[in-house]
Simulated scan of single mutants.
Amino acid sequence: MNILDIATRTLPLLDLTSLNDADDAFSTAALCTKAVTAVGHVAAVCLWPSFVPQAKRCLTGTGVKVATVVNFPGGSLPAEKVVDQIARALADGADEIDVVMPYAAIMAGMGGDQRAADHLLACRAACGHATMKVILESGALAKPALIARAAQVAVAAGADFLKTSTGKVPAGATLGAARIMLTACRDAGRAVGFKASGGIRDVETAGQYLALADEICGPDWVSPATFRFGASGLLDALLGVLGQGPVMPVTTGY
């Protein structure tokens, strides 16, 4: 793939993300405006739960989904609290839920896998038909065996996507972790997607992840239903390659 092909392929796979402490109604409006460009729209915006209603109003009719995060970023909340977060987000109009699995339980061993599984099963039930992306925090798990175990737990608990990272720990997405997780997606026995998130900022790096997905899951597997990039700055890089600076405005909704 040349860089133009990579950019064209990547843009509709993007979960345009803003999870900053300083986010507000104005930054949310700006994020939603950027999501619809002159060369197409991104897959979703991903933002804090409190901004879901605004984003939903802003993006109605655009084809852009609204995603939010729960049990974020530490993955340490009790299941009942996370279930409540999910219920509130769905009531506010969220289409997709990115839930941090209790990855510390995986790292602890001694029954931790089952504790993580029970937690995610409760989240799955709360999500209903909404897309559930499970964040493994692969940078914290670090060891290939732990990443593989976390992926297996998430798949068994009903994850629709395996996602690498929150972006809140020093190590984000890596190709090594992606290989393990994509292999788990391929071998799941049902449709499970993959989301690379954390530190992907340029088109060339995006191309490396697409090539890896093609290698492991097949050249026709990647689509917005099966593959996402979670990023903020990547969109500007894509638009630069595609020769599109300005974005098309949409109703702000605040």
Rank of each mutant, 00 (worst) to 15 (best):
V155H: 09
G158K: 12
A151M: 03
A184P: 07
A173K: 09
A157T: 07
D202P: 14
A196I: 10
C185A: 08
T174P: 06
C185H: 09
A206L: 02
A159C: 12
S165R: 04
E204S: 14
V169M: 09
C185T: 00
K168P: 13
A206M: 06
F194G: 00
T205W: 07
D160K: 02
R201G: 05
K168R: 15
G172R: 05
K195G: 01
V192E: 15
A177Q: 03
T166R: 05
A157R: 11
L182D: 13
L182M: 15
T205D: 13
D160C: 04
V192N: 08
C185L: 10
D187Q: 13
E204Y: 12
I180H: 05
G207F: 12
A156G: 15
T166K: 01
L182H: 03
A171S: 11
K163P: 00
G158I: 01
V155R: 12
G189E: 03
F194Q: 03
A178I: 04
A206C: 12
S165D: 03
A156V: 15
A178S: 07
A188Q: 14
V155Y: 13
A171N: 12
G167H: 06
T164W: 04
D202L: 12
V153K: 10
I180S: 03
M181F: 01
K168W: 08
V169I: 15
V155P: 06
G207D: 12
G199C: 03
G198E: 00
G193K: 01
A173G: 09
A191G: 11
A154H: 01
V203N: 00
V169L: 09
G158H: 00
P170I: 06
A184N: 12
K195L: 09
A206Q: 05
G199Y: 05
V155N: 05
A184I: 05
V169S: 14
G176C: 07
Q152S: 12
K195E: 02
G176Q: 08
G199I: 02
A156D: 14
E204Q: 15
A191N: 11
I180P: 05
A171T: 15
R179H: 10
M181P: 09
G167T: 10
S165M: 04
R190Y: 14
T205F: 13
V153N: 11
R190H: 14
K163L: 13
A188L: 10
L182E: 00
A154F: 02
A188D: 13
A157D: 14
A184K: 10
A178P: 00
G172V: 04
A206V: 06
R201S: 10
A191Q: 13
T174H: 11
G198C: 02
T164R: 02
G198K: 01
A177P: 00
G167Y: 03
T164Q: 00
R186F: 11
D187R: 10
K168I: 11
G167L: 09
R179D: 01
F194Y: 06
A196R: 00
K195S: 06
S165F: 05
D187T: 13
T166I: 05
A177Y: 02
T174E: 07
T205V: 09
A184S: 11
T205G: 11
M181L: 08
A151L: 07
A156N: 15
C185M: 10
A157H: 01
F161K: 08
I200Y: 03
C185S: 14
K195Y: 02
A171C: 13
T183A: 14
A151C: 13
K168Q: 13
T183F: 10
A178F: 03
Q152N: 14
G172W: 00
